[in-house]
Design a protein around this nucleic acid. Structure first.
Lengths: 164, 164
DNA sequence: TGGATATAGATGCAATTGCATTTATATAAG
DNA sequence: CTTATATAAATGCAATTGCATCTATATCCA
């Protein structure tokens, strides 16, 4: 086995560091711009859209919170409270999940579906303006391709793994 | 002039939408992983690093808050409070800016420079692990290139613009 | 069966962020 | 000079997030 300092603490190349800095910048700038457009239209933030979209797509318009967690990457407690707020404004509803007493169903309401559609009418042109207008189709595909590679979670030895 | 509905509300193509979704995903996953590594090393969050790095690079190790704002993309009030916390832990120091009574200098301390270096020793391998290991050099360059296009702020008509 | 352990989701409390406003100073316009 | 307007930075307060823990139920294993 080679020198562990090279295995455990490799320096990123300049190219890699530049890609990282630009990833942070680009997403922040585009996200802020899109959120701003939503706010101007007096619509709720993007997190609400993500939740509504996942529910709208799901069978019977409902999901378990833990499923939503995985799909939205929201932390458990943040999702729980986001659902509180969305329930209070009537966009979703929590129902009992009889097959497992610990669980819940979260169901999208008609008002929720309407809000999802309403948000998309602002969100879609915002994506186009802040991202689409800056890339041609080939570049968008290329970017999506490269970014997909980054979303693979980094390897971590599982708890009960035999290999050290 | 062509149909205004096409000008004002263009739908993003599937490629563009996919690129956007993956941009959000990829940056969240990589950012969370890097922040996690910092936390495990009992180091402060990335925002602190950004501030320290900008100051360390600046002439005489000091900048005006509004300059830091532009460079870090932090909101004014958030930067102000981040500086409060950093000052309290001795990493930076606020000093009078005599040429403009409204302004301040923010200066990095020796402890601040030490912390920047200490954080880099964790941050650098984290960038490599969570991003560099997933791309080759050519891909990293390509990604950086594509992302650069997105960081150009979208056009907004300036207040006093003549054209409507 | 009966702990021990794991999982789903909620919640109390502290830290951080967002928003609006305030304070202080500078610059512009009459 | 004096008032109006703009800019730099700080701050009060509400909303959101993070962290740890709690409650309830389910599963595993002796």
């Amino acid at each position: 086995m080679s020198d562990s300092s090279e295995i455990n603490s490799p320096q990123p190349s300049q190219s890699v560091t530049r890609a990282w800095v630009r990833l942070m910048r680009a997403q922040q700038i585009v996200l802020d711009a899109i959120e701003q457009d939503l706010k101007v239209a007096e619509l709720p933030p993007l997190g609400w859209y993500d939740v509504l979209l996942e529910l709208a797509r799901a069978d019977d318009g409902r999901l378990r919170p833990y499923e939503m967690e995985q799909r939205t990457l929201l932390a458990q407690h943040n999702l729980s409270r986001l659902l509180d707020r969305m329930e209070k404004t009537g966009l979703v509803q929590r129902e009992v999940f009889s097959e497992d007493g610990r669980g819940r169903w979260v169901m999208i309401t008609e008002a929720g579906r309407a809000m999802q559609a309403r948000m998309w009418r602002v969100y879609a042109p915002a994506i186009q303006r802040h991202l689409g207008d800056k890339l041609d189709e080939a570049q968008a595909d290329q970017l999506a391709e490269l970014l997909a590679a980054l979303s693979q979670k980094s390897y971590r030895a599982p708890k009960n793994s035999i290999e050290g």
